[in-house]
Amino acid sequence: MNRLQKLFDTKQGDILNIYAPAGYPKLEDTMSIITELDRLGVDIIELGMPYSDPMADGKTIQDSSQIALENGMNLDVLFQQLSTLRENTQVPVVLMGYFNQLVQYGLERFLDSCVKVGVDGLILPDLPMEIYSNQFQALFEERDLSMSFLVTPETSDARCQTAAQLSTGFLYVVSSSSITGKSGNLGEDQISYFEKIQSLLPDTNKLIGFGIHDQASYENACEYANGAIIGSAFIRALTGDKELSSNIEEFITSIRP
């Protein structure tokens, strides 16, 4: 059992997952951000592997990815930075990126590197469930690496069931049909969608993501799932006017005072 699965075994609600792009705002900030988030009680850290063409992400993540790439971030540097991860923290860490990054790095080599540094799971938005289950699932399971698939308001009930079955970390419930970075409030449609997912998949670990940006939207999401994922709002906070650790602390305490 990896750290992600252990977390859900002991904690069923109010789970906060923070997304941060690796190598942003400065190349060397990756580990400091992880340890700071851990210190502040964040439950899961989702590290973005910066990609040149992140098609499922909005402007905030795209811009920060671009800066991280310009800073010199790549998968070799990332695994090097994470080589001391487990000396510092036991917080579950999930890597998020695009499938082409893994293919070019070498899929098995990539997964082995994840195991070696103590990464617990992956989110690969452009790897469809069918391709994963037909070709790659065994490679992940052998290594005790979790996968998380996404469902959206357009996902059929049958497909939601499949996504839940294949997701060994948590199911990623996309709050609306929308790319990351939009922040509105929950509408009636969203609430009935969350309720549908809840009744369809009562026993699945679920985190709601996309558009969660403040205490109210976070708490709202926690009512319909085990917790929530915050990405773009956190990235914007990282470059606030104080030093890095104060910016992080201020943001996290604004979400969970």
Partner: peptide, 12 residues
């Protein structure tokens, strides 16, 4: 070829 797409595009 193939279709390596995020779930948000799947239904379409």
């Amino acid at each position: 070829g193939g279709a390596y797409i995020p779930e948000m595009l799947y239904s379409n």
